[in-house]
Design a protein around this nucleic acid. Structure first.
Lengths: 347, 347
DNA sequence: TCGCTAATTGGAACCGGTTCCATTTCGTTG
DNA sequence: CAACGAAATGGAACCGGTTCCAATTAGCGA
């Protein structure tokens, strides 16, 4: 039962509590002799300081709160892994908050900062509202956004407009003219990437002189299964698309499944491109737009750590590049694939 | 700047600090009238109690520490998701510790409990040593193991011997006689599943009257790439196996890659079975042994929560079943697959 | 030897809650 | 109407650190 306190140590070492505290905090104002005495008393009593008391007295928690939506989303997990890799070698503990439901969101974002259980906050793929940001300012807590944007907050992001452009351009370059975009709901206020990639999609279309077709843009919940249904709707169109740009790799997988169910070969009959380059995209050889997921977590954590040391007047921004990874789910329009060249998920 | 304290609230409401504290903790010994006054003072001042102070005075942290090795391992992530799903609706915060290096392990396992920053500890896929367990007892902190075993601790586990047996039996039933096992290092003291599955493997072999062949069991670091190399070694044997049992799906993926690189079709020329049933196994249609990963996290968190409420004298154990999921990477020995029946990852 | 400064050290006060004990208030009962 | 117990309340003491100020000691130059 280690209920030993600093006063026990002080008594045993024959010094004052202040001195013990100084030893614990490596204050230079302690003679080597006393330091020695205190050290051995600490060891003899197997003492370790109570962090709650320390927090209370110095007003710091030595913890960082990480708030994550849908912890089951693989790209979110990958970013979190980047964050963890940095924090686990720092002196800060990591407190994880998962927000699964929308109504949970508001509550959490409001209460977490004011509960003061972290010295800094990292939001992953979660766009805060103005009210939230006000709360952060009120609580005087540094916040960094990863894969989300707010003008008043520092952030790490990817150029999603460019990514959407690259994906669409790739399909256009392959000769496709009937290109669909399946995505999360465009009007989700907390998900700006979905709109940015859509912008890039329309840009590439416009640039190539291809008219935007409303029926080629379908929205739904995020996930493999909703994407499968969306793709079926697309394929059932009187004039179905020949290529699909999926908002995420997860959704691309759903699209591939739908194609298979409809007896279409990928990429022979239908080209599909994803976004994110999650690990499964590699296994499945899905053509995709890579964004540096892990790295975004690393940079975000680093930025927050910096900001906590030396607060910056201006919000900082780190922009990460996107890159086309050309694999096996996209092909030249109209050019039938040789059998055996068939890509993943094909039976 | 919300540095409002309970005393400010007391002053504004015209009551004593004790009363405010009572209101905060829903003590019944407060009249409705005063409760009302205090409530409105709290709202007016936008007050919220400082958790550090609360922790200090009542000696509870309202947090649970979750210790995880190799946060990049998909099966560990999946278990963690189960844990999160339970804790995020509980009143406990979740503090995440990632142990990437072996020497980090000892240090963390020793210091985390004594730092007293959590009321309970959950170890995922991490077997503690006797010394560690002693520390837990000393710190008087409840601990639950998920996917790990120690006689003195409550745990949630899977019957790995049975799983290894099922996998091997499946291959034997398909007519295979030359069956390899690729795995993590058997002598890793913190990884008992690797030995248990090995035991199941040998059991099934013995039962079928097949002699165990040392050269068919290869060990290496965990991961896709090491597994790929191991499989190449296997395939280069003068008398190579016709089937491979991989310790994990991740390793099965590596094995599939190796087969493809060697120009072998899966399952036509080589049957491969994995373990875990991670999501990628479904996409890739890998035959595997399912263990309830997510559920193990859910049960583990639930068990810990129970134990914290009402400590049990005896360590509890929850055993989860394993089940064969027959997909497309295993086939009857000697029976060539029709082309087009080729499984995932095949180009 | 004296005086002064720098280096150490002791310990009270404080951080912001909770808890327990003493006190006040009020309704009941004889 | 007095006596008494229950309910409600105030506030000191405490949890276990940190910090700052005052006090002691030591070193050094004149």
């Amino acid at each position: 039962m280690s209920k030993t306190t600093i006063r026990d140590v002080a008594k045993r070492a024959g010094v004052g509590v202040g001195t013990v505290s100084r030893v614990l905090n490596n204050s230079p104002a302690v003679s080597d002799a006393t330091r020695q005495k205190v050290q051995s008393a600490i060891e003899a009593l197997n003492f370790s300081p109570n962090p709650a008391a320390r927090r209370l007295s110095q007003g710091k928690t030595m913890a960082i709160g990480v708030i994550v939506p849908f912890f089951t989303n693989p790209s979110v997990v990958r970013r979190l892994q980047g964050v963890v890799s940095v924090l686990s070698v720092s002196k800060y503990d990591l407190i994880l908050f998962d927000i699964e439901k929308v109504n949970q969101r508001d509550m959490s974002l409001r209460t977490i900062p004011q509960r003061k259980l972290a010295d800094g906050l990292l939001l992953i793929s979660l766009t805060p509202s103005d009210i939230d940001v006000e709360q952060f300012a009120l609580a005087n807590i540094p916040v960094v956004l990863v894969d989300a944007y707010h003008p008043a907050l520092s952030r790490v992001l990817v150029n999603n407009v460019q990514g959407g452009y690259q994906a669409t351009k790739h399909l256009i370059d392959l000769g496709h003219r009937k290109i669909a975009y399946i995505s999360d709901y465009l009007d989700d206020p907390f998900n700006s990437p979905v709109r940015d990639r859509f912008t890039g999609y329309k840009q590439a279309l416009a640039e190539a002189g291809i008219a935007y077709r409303e029926e080629y843009h379908l929205q739904g919940e995020h996930g493999r299964s909703p994407a499968r249904h969306l793709t079926h709707t697309l394929l059932d169109l009187p004039d179905p698309p020949t290529a699909v740009f999926a908002y995420s790799d997860t959704q691309a997988i759903g699209a591939i499944e739908a194609a298979r169910e409809s007896g279409l070969s990928v990429p022979g009959d239908l080209s599909i491109i994803g976004f994110d380059n999650i690990e499964a995209a590699e296994y499945l050889r899905i053509t995709t737009i890579r964004q540096a997921l892990f790295e975004s977590g690393v940079k975000g954590a680093g930025l927050l750590l910096n900001l906590m040391e030396t607060p910056a007047a201006e919000p900082q921004e780190i922009l990460l590049p996107t890159k086309l990874i050309d694999r096996h789910t996209t092909a030249q329009y109209g050019k039938k694939q040789l059998s055996g060249q068939i890509a993943a998920l094909q039976t």
